[in-house]
Amino acid sequence: MKAFEVVAARDARHAVALLAEHTPTAKVKVIAGGTDLLADLKFASASHAPDVVVDISRAEDLRTIAVTGGGLSIGALVTHTEIMASPAIREMFPALVDAAHTIGAVQTRNLGTLGGNLVTAVPSVDSGPTLVALDAQVTVLGPGGERRMPLAEFFVGPRRTALKPDELLVEILIPTENLGKPACFLKFGLRKGQALALVNVAASFWVDAKTQTFRAPRVALGAVAPKVIHATSAEAYLEGRAIAPEAMAEAGRLAVGDAKPISDFRASAEYRKHLIAVLTRRALEGAYDVWQKKQSPAGRAR
């Protein structure tokens, strides 16, 4: 690994001050859990390697999980293990727990952070689809203050985000209107452990209890486009439609048309298309299961 200087940030504001200080004259990277950055730097060419690394791993203000006026706020430094253990997330969004569980292995989940996973922005990012399906916003802190945008727009392309060099991702926010919205995340990899997704899918929708129809349906696909995408034709098809297995299967077929999967050594585009249809249908079924269980928790126990 090429030598670099490390400057440690006390908190988010200090980190942004350090970025402002160093980015004009040096190549700067931010380290949180290090699971992506250090693995990458060990193979980085000298031209790509940073001169300065801002260490935010002790910025305790980025480590909170809390329901605020804006919704469920998850600090960028919250680890995948902490997501899995959070009572609030387990209660409101078991899909986020499932997604965190598929990332890396115990050791990488103990180090790796939600913010880091999103900033790395690989197309197969496992924490992406569920958050996109829940209309999550991200808060970015820069020299001029905070700005907020949908996570779906924060992702720009493979390993590219809307983050400017002097900005820091500080918060992931699931808006109040989506708290407890039924959701399901499914990932298909070549193994159970430490696999990259061939396809990952999240589905989320409210159930209009009176009419038994889909309300605000969302389907998000990962690993089948340059970034995590909404399956917009599947979402449009489901809106207001009666909840039925056939509708879920048709949404799966439509989702295939929303994606642009590639062929690589892991799988062919054809196979990925097949997976999109199957996983989308199953994720919709899974989200409906979540909803049904919430309706009659006592009924399940009987």
Binding site: V6, A8, I31, G33, G34, T35, L38, A39, D55, S57, T81, A105, V106, Q107, T108, N110, L111
Partner: peptide
């Protein structure tokens, strides 16, 4: 995982953590 150690009670890949961290 050959480099696994425990830091503050949690298992980590020690190859992915800076000494300063």
């Amino acid at each position: 995982g050959a480099c696994t150690v425990m830091v503050d009670g949690k298992s980590v890949n020690s190859c992915l953590m800076l000494a300063g961290q």
